[in-house]
Amino acid sequence: MIKAILVFNNHGKPRLSKFYQYFNEDMQQQIIKETFQLVSKRDDNVCNFLEGGSLIGGSDYKLIYRHYATLYFVFCVDSSESELGILDLIQVFVETLDKCFENVCELDLIFHADAAHQVLDELVMGGMVLQTNMADILCRLQEQNKMQKTEAGISAAPARAVSAVKSMNLPQQLRDMKLPDLPQAIKDLKF
């Protein structure tokens, strides 16, 4: 069983957290903090397994993590999971995110944590691995997003337009967002 999946950046700021066992919010933050402290002090060329998280789990649990650029992806699993398997799973997760966001970066997770959760939900369910085939996962996600789009239909257009304008007005946006978004926003405006 997977007990928790945590994504945080190099400074320990949570970007995505999923607990498959209940902890209250304070405890969740403490766990993230502790995990960050454990993981962040390790070199990049050491192994990806870690024992000794005191708050989460116990002797049967391990932290398995991967470090991509500015983000740590940490899975807390018990002994029924294969260690190398989970490493692969993290890879699948990140690759899927990459496909969904087109060159995923930390900003994508910051602004679209909900979308990342949707990806994760297709990958893991209730702490058990659901699907590991990336093509399948992407297909499921696309179909669901399509449903959402048809629902939104014409009535959502004004709202989209306004949010696009709001996005444009902020100078921050220029720094934050990638340039290719701009034409898209203009297209929405015309409508």
Binding site: I110, F111, D114, S155, A156, P158, A159, S163, S167, L170
Partner: peptide, 15 residues
Amino acid sequence: NFERMFDKNLTDLVR
């Protein structure tokens, strides 16, 4: 929908 336009959405909150 019109009212909604001026609410803060998630992106606004994060920003």
